[in-house]
């Protein structure tokens, strides 16, 4: 026989108890008791970048790649690559993007998903490139909120220790 776990009327206290012992009883305003338990979950995925792989491999070499529609009359240039054209459906080919561009829009995040809270505040920017028909989302570093504006010239920086993630590239204000 095991005694029931402690009862709390504040949900905050229930959460604290879960962290400690893994179980608690929550008594709500109507006097209804609910047994609440900790219920963890974690998983490792085997993730293939598949047709996007050349982009991430290029980042690790310090190159920024986009893609261009192979149909002559379309020739849409994607600054975030896609292996098939969203306009006409034709296959695209890999191209090198300039490593300089301009801010199309931006924000400074003071919060984020749980995994990213420790990185706050961080800037996000959509970057436009000369000759490209779409833009690219990236982190923007070495600049604070009050310095950022639409149209600001920026240039790419690459992680010398690449993790094969979109975070292997970021932008900084162009000097």
């Amino acid at each position: 026989m095991k005694a029931p776990p402690p009862t709390y009327s504040k949900f905050r206290d229930v959460q604290a108890e879960l962290a400690k012992s893994g179980a608690a009883i929550f008594r709500d305003a109507d006097g209804v008791d609910s047994l609440v338990i900790r219920y963890p979950y974690s998983i490792e995925y085997i993730h293939s970048y598949a047709q996007d792989s050349p982009f991430f491999l290029a980042l690790a070499e310090g190159r920024l790649r986009g893609s261009r529609c192979t149909k002559k009359r379309c020739a849409f240039v994607f600054a975030t690559p896609r292996s098939h054209c969203m306009v006409c459906g034709a296959p695209t080919e890999w191209i090198d993007l300039p490593t300089t561009g301009r801010i199309h829009s931006w924000t400074t995040c003071h919060f984020g998903g749980e995994a990213f809270l420790k990185e706050t505040p961080y800037n996000l920017a959509l970057v436009e490139f000369e000759g490209a028909d779409s833009v690219m989302l990236a982190r923007l570093k070495d600049a604070v909120e009050s310095e950022l504006y639409v149209g600001m010239p920026v240039e790419a920086r690459f992680d010398p220790n690449p993790k094969y993630s979109i975070t292997d590239v970021w932008f900084v204000p162009r000097k």
Partner: peptide, 24 residues
């Protein structure tokens, strides 16, 4: 999850990007 999520995992950030451009 390849191109957007690893940058911050944060929808409010995406909507902020959109409204900054809307205001512009």
């Amino acid at each position: 999850t390849n191109f957007d999520f690893p940058l911050g995992g944060f929808y409010t950030g995406y909507y902020a990007l959109m409204v900054v451009r809307h205001i512009y």
